[in-house]
Every structure is written in structure tokens, then in C-alpha cells.
């Protein structure tokens, strides 16, 4: 099974209607302020199923706050986030994950003391057993089906030769790959990626783009927050531009490239 097949495994039953891009995530009039500073104001956003939606904007635009609102880390002052018919607002991170939303963090968040294989098996167990399963006498080592799948996902993200290494021994780029594998094994309906190539060398960035493209080809919905325009324009189907906590533009990569507001606020004439 390829990464792309794994990514969409389990989403078919939802009935992806070809040619009719239906909404999978709806951010409805979200507002959030911190000590009087408006981090997000009147944010409305629709993400269609199967698309890769990039959220860009200068530093302090509110991109990460929006992502944190989506995963339950931050509760908005107003508005709601609706995913696949479920309101995410007010739900705990584990509940949101169980609904099918996985997240890759800006700084890689992995289980440093565990091996690469264990890192990937834990999310798989959580997907299978739910958010709590008290059975102290089921052998972790005996989970052969999950281990086989984990080994396959690990191989697909390029960590085959590190499978038994502790996660702490991996490079930053490899930790990002591991985190991606931890998300992919859950077959999420929506994958949120917060600067997935930050701090990577160019060849690692290109490898990550290829990996994400492979997932994209099979129709998994993704939201990417990214500063690197090369990554954004390589992957995004649609782009939302945030500035000062407000959406200033939305559209296809071509539309965004030619949007004067975006040129002014973020990209700069020369870059575009």
C-alpha cells in the first residue's frame, strides 16, 4: 500500500463525489483576541474535501492561532469551527482527533523516548481502540497487524532504516517525517500541517513536497500553513491570505499571485 492509498483509506465510505467539491471544514465567523490584541477577526473559511488549502500571511497574521482554534487548543471568543458535520469548538484535542483531524506541529512533537516504530504504533492503537482502553494485559509487541502497517508507513516516509532507533536520535527533518507518519497511520479525513518544511534544507523540502503531493493525488484534505512560497505554490489548490487576523484574499494560486492586496500586504511586488 502506498502513502497515498493509506492516506485515503477509510474515507471512501464518506462518499467523495467526483466533480462536486463539498465542504469538509467550515470556519464560521471566528474571532479571538489576546489581551485586547485581535489575533483573529471575522474569519470565515471553507475547505473543500480533497483539496490542499494553504493559509499564508506575514508573521503575526494569525495563521497558527487559526490552526489552534481548529484543533481545540484555543477556544475562540466567538464563532465556530464545523468539521464533517461536527462542531469542533469546545471539544478537547483528543475528541477532535478521534473525529478524523490529525495535526503536524510547527516544532516536531514526537515521543522522544520511544522508538520510531512505537511512535507510529501508538496513534494506530488510538485510532483502533478509541481515546481510552484499559486492558493492561494485551501485549503491545503482539499487535502484529498494527506493527506491519506501521512498518509500511515508516518505509514510505523514508525512515525504514531508523525503525528501531529512538525518536530522540533523529534529525529535525526526520522527526517531521516521523510526525507525518504518525498522522498518516490514522488515515485522517483532515490533515493540518503547521509549517511542515520549516528549518529543512532544500533537498529535504523537495522530498517533503513530493511526499505531500503523493498524498494529495489521492484526495485527502489538507490545510498547510507555510512561509515558503515554493512549497505553497507547489502544493496548494486554494490559498487563503491572512493579515492582522483578517482574511484579505482567497482563491487559486494564480489569483493570489495577481491579487494587489496580497502583493501589498505580504508577498511584495518583486517576489510575485
Amino acid at each position: 500500500m502506498s502513502v497515498a492509498e493509506m492516506a485515503t483509506h477509510g474515507t471512501d465510505e464518506r462518499g467523495f463525489r467526483s466533480g462536486v467539491p463539498n465542504k469538509v471544514l467550515h470556519v464560521d465567523d471566528v474571532h479571538k483576541s489576546f489581551a485586547g490584541l485581535h489575533a483573529l477577526s471575522d474569519v470565515d473559511l471553507d475547505v473543500r474535501q480533497g483539496e490542499t488549502h494553504a493559509i499564508i500571511g506575514p508573521n503575526g497574521a494569525g495563521k497558527s492561532t487559526l490552526l489552534n482554534v481548529c484543533v481545540g487548543r484555543i477556544k475562540p471568543d466567538r464563532g465556530a469551527v464545523i468539521f464533517d458535520g461536527n462542531t469542533l469548538t469546545g471539544k478537547a484535542p483528543h475528541e477532535i482527533n478521534q473525529l478524523g483531524v490529525a495535526r503536524v506541529f510547527q516544532t516536531p512533537e514526537v515521543f522522544l523516548d520511544l522508538s520510531v516504530l512505537q511512535n507510529v504504533m501508538v496513534p494506530a492503537l488510538s485510532k483502533r481502540d478509541g481515546y481510552f482502553n484499559l486492558n493492561p494485559f494485551t501485549a503491545f509487541a503482539g499487535e502484529t497487524a498494527i506493527r506491519d502497517e506501521a512498518e509500511e508507513v515508516i518505509a514510505n516516509v523514508g525512515l525504514k532504516y531508523h525503525i528501531h532507533s529512538p525518536a530522540s536520535s533523529l534529525s529535525r527533518g526526520d522527526k517531521r517525517r516521523l510526525e507525518l507518519a504518525m498522522c498518516l497511520i490514522q488515515h485522517p479525513k483532515l490533515l493540518l500541517l503547521d509549517e511542515p518544511t520549516a528549518g529543512m534544507a532544500r533537498h529535504d523540502t523537495n522530498a517533503t513536497i513530493d511526499l505531500l503531493k503523493e498524498i494529495k493525488e489521492n484526495g485527502m484534505t489538507k490545510i498547510i500553513i507555510e512561509h515558503d512560497m515554493h512549497v505553497v505554490f507547489s502544493l496548494a489548490d486554494r490559498i487563503t491570505v491572512l493579515a492582522g487576523g483578517r482574511i484579505i484574499a482567497q482563491g487559486s494560486p494564480e489569483e493570489i499571485k495577481n491579487n494587489p492586496k496580497v502583493k501589498e500586504a505580504y508577498l511584495g511586488e518583486e517576489q510575485v
Binding site: F111, V122, M182, Q186
Partner: peptide, 9 residues
């Protein structure tokens, strides 16, 4: 923190 975002309560 990671475990929570992995769906574990």
C-alpha cells in the same frame, strides 16, 4: 501533549 493530539484521553 502529542498523545492528546493523537486521540488519547
Amino acid at each position: 501533549n502529542r498523545l492528546k493530539y493523537t486521540g488519547v484521553h
